Simulated assay, not measured.
Amino acid sequence: MTPLTESDREALALQLDLLKRRVLDELRGAGAHVGPGTRAGDHEVHSHADDAEAEQLDDVHFAEIEVDRTRLYDIERAQQRLADGLYGICADCGEEIPRERLLAQPTAIRCAACQTAAESRRRS
Rank of each mutant, 00 (worst) to 15 (best):
1 M>K: 12
1 M>G: 12
3 P>I: 11
4 L>W: 06
6 E>S: 12
6 E>D: 15
9 R>Q: 14
10 E>K: 15
10 E>H: 11
10 E>L: 11
11 A>F: 05
11 A>H: 14
12 L>K: 11
12 L>V: 07
12 L>R: 04
12 L>A: 07
13 A>R: 14
14 L>C: 09
17 D>G: 04
18 L>P: 08
19 L>A: 10
19 L>T: 06
20 K>R: 14
20 K>E: 13
20 K>Q: 14
20 K>L: 14
21 R>I: 13
22 R>F: 09
23 V>D: 03
23 V>P: 03
24 L>E: 13
27 L>F: 01
28 R>A: 13
29 G>S: 04
31 G>Y: 11
32 A>Y: 12
32 A>P: 08
33 H>T: 11
33 H>S: 11
34 V>W: 07
35 G>C: 01
36 P>A: 11
36 P>F: 12
37 G>C: 03
38 T>I: 15
38 T>H: 14
38 T>Y: 15
41 G>R: 09
43 H>W: 11
44 E>S: 13
46 H>C: 05
48 H>T: 13
48 H>D: 11
50 D>Q: 05
50 D>G: 03
51 D>L: 06
52 A>Y: 05
53 E>R: 13
53 E>I: 12
56 Q>A: 10
56 Q>F: 07
56 Q>H: 08
59 D>S: 11
59 D>M: 09
61 H>L: 04
61 H>A: 09
63 A>K: 07
63 A>N: 05
64 E>R: 04
65 I>M: 03
65 I>H: 01
65 I>C: 00
67 V>C: 01
68 D>Q: 07
69 R>C: 02
69 R>A: 01
69 R>K: 12
69 R>F: 02
69 R>G: 00
71 R>I: 02
71 R>S: 03
71 R>A: 11
72 L>D: 01
72 L>G: 04
73 Y>S: 14
74 D>C: 03
74 D>Y: 05
75 I>D: 00
75 I>E: 01
75 I>S: 00
76 E>A: 02
76 E>D: 09
79 Q>G: 06
79 Q>V: 05
80 Q>R: 09
81 R>L: 07
83 A>F: 02
84 D>M: 00
84 D>I: 00
84 D>Q: 06
86 L>M: 06
86 L>D: 12
91 A>R: 06
94 G>A: 01
95 E>W: 08
96 E>G: 13
99 R>W: 04
99 R>T: 04
101 R>S: 07
101 R>K: 10
101 R>I: 02
103 L>F: 10
103 L>D: 04
103 L>V: 07
104 A>C: 06
104 A>R: 07
104 A>W: 05
105 Q>L: 15
105 Q>M: 15
106 P>D: 00
106 P>V: 00
107 T>M: 07
107 T>C: 10
108 A>E: 02
108 A>H: 08
109 I>S: 15
109 I>T: 15
109 I>G: 15
110 R>A: 09
110 R>N: 10
111 C>F: 03
111 C>V: 04
114 C>K: 11
114 C>G: 09
115 Q>E: 15
116 T>R: 15
116 T>L: 13
117 A>P: 06
117 A>M: 15
118 A>W: 05
119 E>C: 09
119 E>G: 05
120 S>A: 15
120 S>G: 10
122 R>I: 09
122 R>S: 13
123 R>V: 07
123 R>N: 10
123 R>C: 02
124 S>C: 06
124 S>K: 14
124 S>V: 08
